[in-house]
Structures are given as C-alpha cells and as structure tokens.
Simulated assay, not measured.
Amino acid sequence: MMFLYLKAFHIMAMVCWFAGIFYLPRLFVYHAMSDDKTSQDRFAIMERKLYRGIMNPSMIATWLLGLSMVVINWEVYKTQGWLHAKITLVVLLTLYHMMCGRFRVRLVDNPKLKTHVYWRWFNEIPVLILIAVVILVVVKPF
C-alpha cells in the first residue's frame, strides 16, 4: 500500500515539475519579446517565482519519491532496462532544468540573450523527454 502512495505522489510531483518545465521557456519567449523595462522586470519576477517556488520543489519531490520506489523494490528493478533508460532521461531533464535556471538569471541582465524563436524550439526538448518516459513506464519495452 505504501508503494502505491509513493507512486501517486511521484506522479503528482512529476506533473507539477513538467508544468513548470513547459511554462518557464514560454516566459522566456515573452521576456525576449518585451521591449520595456517594466515588462522585463515582471517576467524576471514570474520566472524566479516559478523556478524557485514550483519547479525546484517539484523536481526534488519527483526524485525523492521515485528513488524511494526503486529502493523499496530494488530486487525487482535492478534488472529492468526500461527503468535505467527512464532514469537516464530524468537526469537529462534535470540538466535541462538547471540550464533553465542559468538562463533565467542571465535573462535578467540581458533580455535579448536569445531570440523568441530560439526559446520556442528550446521549449520542445522536454516534450520529447516526456513522450519517451511515458512510453518506457507504460510499455516497458525492455
């Protein structure tokens, strides 16, 4: 029963994390397109609150809950290739998350750091990771 609660909270944390992962680069698009200092300051505040208040705690909860499930069932999971692939993708997503954090800080001083087109394409990376992770978890192809 405890495992099912861990899984339920893991899914909730992951959904919150992905909501932030999808929204922050969208804010970068608007930040890059803004021309006035007031708008740029507003986007910087929104980005900071999203990153620190939602994305970081959600990422930490996702990792802790996921690793808890693995530890509880290590004998089952240690030979599951799909889980190793999923963890690799989550590591990549974590690196993407950290890149977003660095970009967020750099955008404060340089709102034109990248074009809005760049940010639109940058925002597609986590979509690919999400698709792969869901397929791995549901289908368990190996």
Rank of each mutant, 00 (worst) to 15 (best):
N73I: 07
R52C: 12
L50N: 15
V71F: 04
K78Q: 14
V91N: 03
I45V: 15
A61T: 08
W63V: 15
M69V: 09
A85I: 06
E47N: 02
V91T: 04
S68R: 00
R52A: 13
V70A: 13
L50E: 11
M69L: 10
T88R: 02
I54N: 11
L83K: 01
G81T: 11
W74G: 00
L64V: 15
G66Q: 09
K78D: 01
K78P: 01
T79K: 13
G66I: 03
V76S: 09
L67Y: 00
K49W: 07
M46W: 12
L50K: 12
K49A: 13
S58Q: 08
W82R: 04
T62A: 13
R48H: 14
P57L: 02
T79I: 06
L64D: 07
K49S: 13
V70G: 03
I87S: 04
L83H: 01
I87C: 05
W82E: 06
V91A: 14
T88V: 10
T79V: 08
I87Y: 03
L50A: 15
E75H: 01
I72A: 09
V76R: 11
M59K: 10
L89I: 08
A61Y: 01
L65C: 13
I60S: 02
K49Y: 11
I60L: 13
L64N: 06
T62Y: 05
V70E: 06
W63C: 10
I45M: 09
L50Y: 05
H84E: 10
I60A: 11
V71Y: 03
T62N: 12
S58F: 01
E75S: 07
L89A: 08
Y51H: 14
H84G: 07
K49L: 14
G66V: 05
A61E: 07
I60M: 09
K86W: 03
G81Q: 08
I87G: 04
K49G: 08
S68T: 04
E47T: 02
M46E: 14
Q80F: 10
H84M: 13
K86D: 11
K49P: 07
M55R: 03
N56R: 13
Y51M: 15
M46L: 14
R48C: 11
G53Y: 07
K49C: 12
Q80R: 12
I72N: 08
G81I: 05
I54V: 15
I72H: 07
I60D: 04
E47G: 01
V71A: 15
I60C: 04
K78A: 01
R52Q: 13
W74V: 02
Y51T: 06
E47R: 00
L65P: 06
A85E: 08
Y77K: 12
I45P: 00
L50G: 14
I72R: 06
I54R: 07
W63F: 10
L64K: 04
V91F: 07
W82K: 04
